[in-house]
Design a binder for these strands. Structure first.
Length: 897
RNA sequence: GGGCGCUUAGCUCAGUUGGCUAGAGCACCGCAUUUACACUGCGGGUGUCGGGGGUUCGAGUCCCUCAGCGCCCACCA
């Protein structure tokens, strides 16, 4: 079957993927006797479509998965999607707003229904796009974070942690997003530098600084550092009267070390309800806390005439009033960081709220026979080497994060997600003193049976369920319906869990190291007593050609996989994403890079096409369309048998490449592996071996090298390699083939070809340099040249190759061990003599350097003996070369005069 | 403020434990050919390895220091 001249990816790709899926090669088999390998796919959010970041991780993971399969392993690469609570919720809320309604109007049930419709469509889109990238994942085991079984496991985990005292409910200061009306965790808060006015206000006898006058209504504590000499006369606990925004207040003096005496006046008032530091000061001294700003972001009645106004509305008016009252002393500009919600970019307002938290400091986790805190376990698994992070430098970042970690707020006030598995019931007798004491709490995997219980309205942070991903996806879905089984039973009885956990590799972006990787470690070590994965490979961000973040506001800068794929092919995109990248480093991607890699795919295609032609077209005895004598037909599939030196050489190169690519892939050096492949295919195979084969074709050998090359290239470019494979008439799938075996080549013969290569290259260089096309090559007593006349003539672009009994005039080839020279006319030799002079001078400086090294007694004495020997040997060689060059130059000068 | 990185050819980046005259791709220049492939072939030039200092027989690589850039964490009212 003849292959078309240009590989048009879009013609083949979807057919190839269907072939794979039909064959079930991607489906894992826990009963297989092969060694098992497993990897969980980071579940994309069900909020939209795939972007280039997804394409990157899918490519890298697919390379891993395919390579492991090639190494004879039973591979499970488990795909799935994430319900992306906050993101999805926000999208639906926005839709509702556009329709002029909101979630409160339509109610919780209707809201959830609408979300489900939306994510259902979105999931299909995403899954088909994952296929388009060529991901060899096991679709039969696809999961979704809100599957019933996964939901149960979330509840099980919550309950277990609650019972161990690792989850508690408490009034704590949280990051409140008034726009989305929910709390967010510390990690979801981002800071943006902003210029803002900084006011100095008169507060009784003190001057206090603030950027937030709107929070100051309730301020009745003045805090200063205990060692601040300026304020020694004020005693801790002392009170005074001050005229404040809305009249007189009684203020109390507090001494606390949290105050920085060098900032502003060294005195501040505190607002414990809306500031973490203030909250902590208040906690230390048992001070009262009062809410100033409501959860809707508007001022409360304490603000008097400003009540009901938003901060932006009220601030200038409050400043005006302060000025009017003579309380405003100074107004200056300063830069500070404003806290924003990473999702939606709403301004964060710290609030005190009754929320659910994960206690990271309580020593309640059994790990390696010791009771430790979650923090300690998270640290230990990396320190002990149970988990390796690639690249290693992220370990430091990880430790740093752990050391600063506070309790994790896991409850969210949104409706889409895993509902907090807690129910409350109000006692009938009301006790005036405390409301909470009269509220019964039930925490359980299933709702309580009695009447009167009401479930906590909150849902859990998305990352709480994602944290279970490596094992919650492996629990048997049917068994999970049986509530008589405990969590331990479920794990013990799930074959997939037993076979595939811990997973081998977690491949993801460094930007979710804390959000996800750390939380998987936290939850998984706690629940299962196992690490979730053995190795974490972190990739970088894909940036624009100019190094900027791709953003929707600049659509031209975005590389959209779904546009690139039909135009250049999936393989081109995949190769571009792998080329020139290293672990943890961001990369730049633009059209040029994709084109360059498309060219590589095309190279592969054309090698196949050439070999295909040889196999099919020439018929014995006939002349082909090039007027050359036809090539002998060699039946396809015949054992490869190296005959020529070129055959041995390419076999040797193939062996080496197979080994080094394998090694690079083993250590996650994807880019390096690809580079090795690239040079093998383009330089060795196409430019030398295929060219050499035009002189002396060995179709069996060409076939063998092509097949092996396809296997090597398959993890990187699965579609084109499989397409070629299928076109070769194979009955099997390339995706199911094993990594090529290393064949031993005759090294001596391989070296002979290496020598021929040098001779050919030198001949080409000289021809170009002297500007003569097709010169003749003469040699004296060279068996190698004599035996490979046709090869040298063709590849060296020579007029002919002849033996000569005596030396003739021309340019000597240094690469030949026996005398060989290109016959060049005297008039053309001038150009070469200049080149020779250059070479002589280079040679001289090289010799000088080597001599210098050997003259250094310390070097000779202390450097390894082998190295010194090598230097000596090299010096002798270089000296000999210089002599040759010099004598040649002399001959030239003679003949030119 | 604390921490982690980066700085190598015009551009994008490799350079693994210190060891031959520092590499690749792209770009650029010259030449060739209608060849499996112009999505091609052949040939070519380019570096004070950010500056300074140190350790060493030997430093792009290790240590110190300075400068510039980037990122992460914390956060000052």
């Amino acid at each position: 079957m003849g292959l078309p001249k240009i590989y048009e990816a879009s013609k083949y790709e979807s057919g190839i993927y269907k072939l794979w899926e039909k064959s079930r090669v991607f489906i894992a088999d826990p009963n297989s006797s092969k060694p098992h390998f497993s990897m969980a796919m980071p579940p994309p959010n069900e909020t939209g479509t795939l972007h280039v970041g997804h394409a990157l991780f899918l490519t890298l993971q697919d390379i891993i998965a395919r390579h492991e399969r090639q190494r004879g392993k039973d591979v499970l690469w488990l795909p799935g999607t994430d319900h992306a609570a906050l993101a999805t919720n926000a999208i639906i809320e926005k839709k509702l707003a556009e329709q002029g309604t909101d979630k409160h109007t339509i109610g919780r049930e209707e809201f959830i229904r609408q979300v489900k419709v939306f994510v259902g469509n979105s999931r299909d889109t995403i899954n088909s796009q994952i296929r388009a990238i060529g991901a060899s994942c096991d679709w039969s085991r696809g999961r979704y974070t809100l599957d019933d079984a996964l939901n149960r496991l979330v509840n099980e985990t919550f309950v277990k942690m609650y019972n161990d005292g690792l989850i508690y409910r408490g009034h704590r200061i949280v990051n409140w997003d008034p726009n989305l009306e929910t709390t967010v965790s510390d990690d979801e808060v981002v800071y943006k530098e902003q210029k803002a006015p900084f006011y100095t206000l008169q507060y009784g006898p003190f001057k206090i600084g603030t950027a937030r006058p709107e929070t100051k209504f309730g301020d009745k504590y003045v805090v200063m550092h205990p060692d601040d000499k300026r304020y020694v006369r004020y005693m801790h606990g002392e009170t005074f009267e001050a005229d404040w925004i809305n009249g007189k207040v009684t203020a109390t003096i507090i001494k606390d070390e949290a105050v920085d005496p060098s900032f502003g006046t060294g005195v501040m008032t505190i607002t414990p309800w809306h500031d973490r530091t203030d909250f902590e000061i208040a906690e230390r001294h048992g001070l009262e806390k009062e809410q100033i700003i409501g959860f809707d972001g508007r001022l409360l009645p304490i603000a008097h005439e400003f009540a009901g106004q938003t901060i932006d509305e009220a601030r200038p008016k409050i400043v005006k009033k302060l000025r009017h009252k003579g309380l405003l002393i100074k107004e200056e500009e300063y830069t500070h960081n404003v806290a924003l919600n990473d999702r939606g970019k709403g301004v964060i307002e710290p609030q005190i709220k009754l929320q659910w938290f994960v206690d990271v400091n309580r020593p309640a986790v059994e790990w390696k026979g010791q009771l430790r805190s979650l923090k300690e376990v998270m640290r230990a698994v990396i320190e002990d080497g149970d988990i390796q992070i690639v690249p290693k430098r992220f370990e430091k970042i990880y430790y740093h994060w752990i050391d600063n970690l506070r309790d994790w707020c896991i409850s969210r006030q949104i409706w889409w997600g895993h509902r907090v598995p807690v129910w409350y019931r109000h006692a009938k007798i009301k006790n005036q003193r405390s409301k909470i004491k009269n509220e019964e709490t039930y925490v359980g995997v299933v709702p309580p049976e009695e009447q009167g219980w009401e479930q906590d309205p909150d849902t859990l942070d998305t990352w709480f369920s994602s944290a279970l991903w490596t094992w919650s996806t492996l629990v048997d879905q049917d068994l999970a319906k049986d509530y008589s089984l405990s969590l331990e039973d479920l794990l013990a009885k799930s074959l997939d869990y037993r076979t595939y956990h811990p997973t081998d590799v977690m491949e993801t972006g460094w930007d979710i190291l804390f959000f996800w990787v750390a939380r998987m470690i936290l939850a998984t070590t706690y629940v299962t007593g196992e690490v979730p994965f053995k190795t974490v490979y972190l990739h970088g961000l894909v940036r624009t050609e100019h190094g900027k973040k791709m953003s929707k506001s600049d659509p031209d800068s975005i590389v959209d996989p779904m546009e690139v794929i039909p135009q250049y092919g999936t393989d081109a995109l995949r190769l571009a994403l792998v080329a020139g990248t290293s672990a943890g480093a961001d990369q730049r991607l633009g059209k040029a890079k994709i084109v360059a890699n498309r060219n590589f795919a095309n190279k592969l295609w054309n090698i196949a096409r050439y070999i295909d032609d040889l196999r099919v077209r020439p018929v014995e005895g006939e002349e082909n369309n090039r007027g050359r004598r036809s090539l002998r037909v060699v039946p396809v599939g015949r054992e490869m048998m190296p005959k020529s030196v070129a055959d041995h050489w390419i076999l040797n190169k193939l062996s080496i490449s197979t080994a080094v690519i394998n090694k690079a892939l083993d250590s996650f050096r994807f880019s390096e592996a690809y580079e090795l492949l690239y040079h093998f295919v383009w330089d060795d195979f196409a430019d030398w071996y295929v060219e050499a084969s035009k002189v002396e074709p060995n179709v069996g050998m060409l076939n063998h090298v092509l097949e092996s090359t396809l296997k090597l290239a398959h993890p990187f470019a699965p579609f084109i390699t499989e397409t070629i494979w299928q076109n070769m008439g194979k009955k099997s799938l390339l995706a199911a083939e094993l990594w090529p075996e290393i064949t031993n080549a005759d090294k001596a013969q391989a070296r002979q070809f290496e020598e021929l290569k040098k001779i050919i290259t030198e001949a080409r260089q000289i021809s170009v340099n002297v500007g003569v096309s097709k010169p003749w090559l003469f040699n004296k007593n060279s068996n190698l040249i004599e035996q490979n006349k046709a090869l040298i003539e063709r590849l060296g672009r020579l007029g002919g190759v002849e033996t000569s009994a005596k030396l003739g005039t021309g340019v000597q080839l240094h690469s030949s061990k026996t005398p060989a020279w290109l016959a060049i006319d005297i008039k053309d030799l001038k150009r070469h003599s200049k080149k020779l002079e250059e070479q002589v001078s280079n040679q001289e400086s090289l010799i000088k350097m080597l001599e210098g090294r050997l003259a250094n007694k310390a070097y000779v004495a202390r450097a390894p003996k082998k190295l010194v020997e090598e230097t000596k040997f090299q010096l002798a060689e270089e000296k000999f070369r210089l002599e040759t060059l010099n004598s040649e130059l002399k001959t030239f000068e003679k003949s030119l005069t």
